[in-house]
């Protein structure tokens, strides 16, 4: 088991290096002079030259890339062009907000998704089942930023139940979390339904029914527990998307997270922040996916046994 985790962790290194190399190359293509962006409009030629040296822009591409990696490992992601603060500080100041939003959205999606999917599967072909299946279809087809706008129109502007953009307390978390979590909710609902439909047909479920257990006990204790593995996997992957892909939804709700920071930085052409954010987000995405893989192995006794038998 440890060897399995170690091996997977080792595979992370080339992926992260590759991602950072790709993003660094893309950012290097950015037209415009970074020194000019850093200094603003008024500067002397001397200041320009010394700043070029200070930012290391006089060095060749590969040297700049390696020093970016070297510094990044030490937690130094450079200085923001627009605020002249350390990039890492800027990101760390915003990151907790994104984390809270992603966790709230995931919690909402898992809870509601498992409940809806379970009822759908238990009452297959009922009206509830077809309604929730169709709702899930709409849920995956809906742009989440549009859904966010609709939530604002109905619940913030119309009914006034929730604030639309002020950032204050739990109440301001509700709408963004629902808007962000709905796509995942739909995906988890579908996965729960299909996975449960598979386990419901298994012999051990028939046995459980035959020995006279109550239906809800059969579903929850025997069928759902065995159906959990794909649900956990898909939820983990969704968490990766929620935390790294939630760029647009933060813009809709003016949520001060790293997604919003990314959009702001793009508009200000603040390359160090854009570069660092994309690399950090992609890294988080990969690490979360790895965590999901490991969890998956951990939750399934069959997979665990496989690794034990191999002596790994």
């Amino acid at each position: 088991m440890h060897k399995f985790i170690l091996r997977r962790l080792a595979m992370l290194i080339p992926v992260i290096l590759g991602v950072s190399f790709i993003v660094f190359s893309i950012m290097d293509l950015t037209p415009g002079d970074p020194v000019e962006m850093y200094l603003g409009d008024n500067y002397t030629d001397e200041a320009h030259a010394s700043m070029t040296k200070e930012l290391g822009l006089d060095k060749p591409f590969i040297v700049r890339y390696l020093s970016f990696i070297g510094n990044a490992i030490q937690g130094d992601f450079g200085i923001s062009y627009s605020t002249h603060q350390r990039v890492l500080d800027e990101i760390l100041a915003r990151f907790p907000n994104t984390l809270v939003l992603a966790i709230a959205a995931l919690f909402f999606a898992i809870l509601a998704g498992i409940i809806l999917g379970t009822i759908s599967a238990a009452k297959q072909n009922s009206i509830f089942d077809s309604t929730s299946t169709f709702a899930a279809l709409i849920g995956v087809s809906m742009p989440n930023f549009w859904f966010g706008l609709m939530l604002i129109i109905i619940f913030a502007a119309g009914l006034g139940w929730f604030p639309s953009s002020e950032f204050s307390g739990v109440k301001s978390l509700v709408l963004p979390a629902i808007a962000l979590g709905t796509n995942s909710l739909a995906i988890i609902t579908r996965m729960t339904r299909s996975s449960l439909l598979e386990t419901i047909r298994q012999d051990y479920v028939r046995t459980a029914r035959a020995k006279g257990l109550k239906e809800y006990k059969v579903i929850i204790k025997h069928a759902l527990r065995n159906a959990m593995i794909p649900i956990i996997t898909i939820s983990g992957l969704q968490f990766g998307f929620l935390i790294s892909g939630a760029v647009v939804i933060e813009t809709v709700f003016s949520w001060p997270g790293i997604g919003r920071l990314l959009v702001e930085a793009i508009q200000l052409k603040d390359t160090p922040i854009v570069l660092s954010l994309v690399v950090i987000k992609a890294t988080m995405f990969t690490v979360i996916n790895l965590g999901t893989d490991i969890m998956y192995a951990f939750f399934d006794p069959r997979i665990r046994a496989q690794y034990k038998a191999k002596g790994a």
């Binding site: 992926v15 892909g245 987000k281």
Partner: peptide, 24 residues
């Protein structure tokens, strides 16, 4: 496939944003 794995490690929308942000 290792190169493809690297691309797959970046969520699609994030990769698109990075490319458009760089190229304009």
């Amino acid at each position: 496939m290792r190169i493809m794995d690297i691309f797959l490690a970046i969520p699609g929308i994030l990769l698109s944003i990075a490319i458009v942000a760089a190229l304009g």
